[in-house]
Design a binder for these strands. Structure first.
Length: 765
DNA sequence: GAGCACTGC
């Protein structure tokens, strides 16, 4: 705990130390502020973010790139681009009805006129013609656009108006569902067409598009899934990969596939001839990134041209700590009170790695806030993290009461996923938790979840959160040197997650991950580990070739072990039960919410669902109980029931949607999803066992559990109903290393299962 | 006695 400090006046203590690193103090030359101002001069007060070292580097990189003969990169700032006469519909290339995009005559309401005016004011609007020209002349274009440039909403519309996509749709991929749906809504408003006509979206469980759809916002997972039915993506004539810098696993797979698809689709075209007698229409690729690694995308696509568009952000003043702050929770608290007592009103957003630190800081701040003089503003603390009880997170969005300063304690959830209004100050601890898969050639790999230093991109993103509505201030609890030595951007996901599902999916496309032309190639160990898992599940044969079982597994939108469990349930006639469990496990939110203050109440409420066989059947009990209530009660009664039992209804509602989708897949595969085993639940565990064979452990004489595939000692996670129980053998959903290796989602299983299962596998092999 | 960043099909 960080509450070693007893008196509020000690808040300033840290700043009384010598400050050798200090170069310049801001306008407030208070001795007590230990901050280093990164703006040595005031020339760029308008865009202090640009003053960051890596932004400067971009210029340097581009300058040197321009000199190099090989690289074709150019630095097109908005001032370099020819400006356009303002009316988008006057574009020479516009062959479509102008949809009233910017023409004043077409707009009817003042709101729409304002909207079109807003569009014209976006930084990217001035570079429109040059941008379209580049896209027209190049197969691949890399667009580096800062936040607020308008690239995501405008570029697809420019392409549509230019007629570049006449033979197909324009796909715009996003890593997150909310982004895809909200962008589609926004852009369809701008186009003055109903959502789902000209502009639509496609995300899991939700599709709004039609045969007339020209611009389709979709998740990257969705388009990778589409590869299975349309390997050349013939539907699309332009694919825009947005947020490419995030380097999600699916974005990387898409980028690799687009390269080979483009080679095939653009090949028959005669270099000179415009006559497109070929059946295949060419594909244009636009890669959009918000950070500085655009070079990498360019190199990957044969030195594709990089275009740069300025962003629009309010100025954010950045201070670095003069010395490093090992106890970042304590440092965050001191900084918060410095802001609270010295700075004008405005909410504070503090970035912390996890729930534990958030709770600890919440307690410290509460303790001190009570001791402040009466004339200071009140403090309203809003913790915010994904695992938090739903409804608690909503507190963040409520209007801050008068004479109150909101203090938001958030994880990375507030970095990209959620934008919180009213934030003027950001405190950045420089830390986040990162999940990383540790492959073991024994096959018993596991995830680690450890606190790590963030990257420069991340630090800039966090600082930017202070400048959403007006100028802001960001206090970094690390030195400028520490910032300079940070990695530029996060390691791509493909290098740190389990590849099991992706390798299976690629096998269905006839591709091998190890032969794919990827921007970053994963470790050999990681591939071997995934191949081994797939072989164990029966998805691959001894020659690494896809089996019919593997193909069937890939048809489920699930992790291979879960898909395997469902397929196994057919033989045990308990598909109904297994689907219920897998659906809840696949839900993005947790069913059992933990609020530490109600621990005892939660334990009592959960007792009702507790199943001696473990977590899987406990989940089944809870889901069944909910469905009984759901059938007979009103919506509000259901909600109340969930609240009373500390169940997250959102998880249950999502599980029902997933279950419906899984039932459809089952029906297509000829699996009877209605098959039920009734009261005898032993077959359920057996089905799960077929999917989780590699996730099993045996009890040792000393009372610990040891992996069956690997040598690690694992502990049952405290959140499990089997915690502290000693059963001969367990299966688990996942293994996660924090302080120890914990097994989560645990069920008891007969040891003999593994003997018969192994025999069965051998016979099949 | 002890605990868990975030996505996606």
């Amino acid at each position: 705990m960080a509450t070693a400090v007893k008196k509020p006046n000690l808040i300033h203590q840290v700043s009384d130390k010598p400050r050798p690193a200090m170069k310049h103090l801001g306008h407030k030359t208070k001795k007590t502020v230990p901050w280093v101002d990164v703006d040595d001069d005031d020339k760029s007060r308008k865009t202090p973010l640009k003053r960051n070292n890596d932004m400067v580097n971009v210029h340097d990189q581009h300058h040197s790139a321009r000199k190099s003969k090989k690289a074709r990169h150019s630095y097109l700032s908005m001032s370099d681009l020819p400006s356009e006469n303002g009316d988008a519909s006057s574009s020479n290339h516009s062959r479509r009805r102008s949809s009233g995009t910017a023409g004043p005559s077409a707009s009817s309401t003042p709101r729409l006129i304002a909207l079109q005016e807003q569009r014209r004011q976006l930084p990217i609007a001035q570079g429109k013609d040059a941008l379209i020209e580049e896209i027209r002349n190049n197969d691949v274009t890399v667009l580096l656009g800062e936040t607020g440039s308008g690239k995501t909403t405008q570029v697809p519309q420019y392409i549509l108006e230019s007629g570049l996509a006449e033979n197909g749709q324009i796909a715009v991929t996003q890593p997150r569902k909310v982004a895809a749906t909200s962008l589609a809504t926004r852009v369809s408003t701008e186009q003055q067409t109903p959502l789902g006509s000209t502009v639509g979206y496609s995300v899991r469980f939700d599709e709004r598009s039609s045969s007339s759809t020209r611009i389709k916002y979709m998740t990257d997972g969705m388009i990778v899934r589409e590869l299975l039915s349309d390997p050349l993506l013939n539907k699309y004539s332009v694919v825009i990969v947005d947020e490419a810098h995030e380097r999600t696993l699916r974005t990387d797979l898409l980028i690799a596939n687009l390269k080979t698809i483009q080679k095939q689709r653009n090949r028959p075209r005669d270099e000179k001839g415009k006559g497109n007698a070929d059946k295949m229409s060419p594909l244009k690729i636009v890669v959009m990134s918000a950070t500085l690694d655009a070079e990498k995308f360019s190199k990957f696509y044969h030195n594709a041209k990089i275009l740069y568009v300025k962003g629009r952000q309010h100025p954010v003043k950045i201070y670095h700590s003069a010395s490093s702050q090992p106890d970042y929770v304590d440092a965050a608290m001191r900084t918060f009170f410095q802001i609270h007592t010295d700075q004008p009103p405005g909410d504070v957003l503090i970035f912390l790695p996890g729930q534990e630190d958030i709770e600890s800081l919440e307690n410290s701040i509460k303790l001190f806030a009570n001791q402040l003089p009466c004339d200071t503003m009140d403090v309203l603390i809003c913790p915010m993290y994904a695992a938090q009880a739903p409804g608690q997170n909503a507190k963040v969005f409520t209007q801050t009461p008068t004479n109150t300063r909101k203090c938001i304690l958030a994880t990375n959830i507030a970095e990209t996923s959620i934008t919180i209004p009213g934030v003027k100050y950001v405190i950045d601890t420089g830390k986040s938790k990162e999940k990383r898969y540790l492959a073991r050639d024994s096959g018993g790999g596991f995830d680690t979840l450890l606190t790590k230093d963030i990257t420069k991109s991340s630090a800039m993103q966090r600082a930017g959160r202070a400048g959403r509505e007006g100028s802001g201030v960001c206090f970094r609890l690390y030195t400028e040197d520490a910032f300079n030595s940070m990695e530029l951007s996060a390691e791509p996901e493909i290098l740190r997650v389990s590849l099991t599902a992706s390798i299976l999916q690629l096998k269905c496309l006839g591709q091998d991950l190890e032969e794919l032309d990827l921007m970053d190639k994963p470790d050999f160990d990681s591939i071997i580990s995934a191949l081994k898992t797939l072989w164990l599940l029966g998805a691959l044969d001894n020659n690494k070739k896809l089996t019919p079982l593997g193909r069937q597994m890939a048809s489920f939108p699930l992790e291979p072990p879960h898909a395997r469990s469902i397929i196994a349930s057919q033989a045990f006639a308990c598909t109904a039960e297994v689907l219920n469990i897998i659906a809840v496990l696949s839900s993005s939110s947790k069913l059992f919410v933990d609020v530490s203050t109600f621990r005892d109440e939660i334990a009592t409420a959960r007792q009702k669902f507790r199943h001696p066989a473990g977590d899987h059947l406990t989940i089944l009990n809870a889901f069944r109980a909910y469905e009984e209530v759901a059938d007979s009660e009103s919506k509000s009664a259901r909600r109340e029931w969930c609240r009373k039992h500390f169940l997250n209804e959102r998880a249950l509602l999502e599980a029902k949607e997933i279950r419906e989708q899984l039932r459809q897949v089952c029906a297509r595969a000829g699996i009877d999803w209605k098959a039920t085993c009734g009261e005898n639940e032993d077959p359920v565990i057996r089905s799960l066992g077929h999917g989780l064979t590699m996730n099993s452990a045996f009890l040792q004489p000393d009372g610990s559990y040891r992996q069956t595939m690997g040598q690690s000692i694992v502990k049952i996670h405290p959140g499990s109903v089997l915690c502290d129980k000693k059963v001969p053998a367990i299966i688990y959903d996942e293994l996660i290393y924090t302080n120890q290796i914990y097994a989560r989602g645990v069920s008891s299983i007969l040891k003999s299962f593994f003997v018969t299962h192994a025999a069965l596998n051998q016979r099949n092999a």
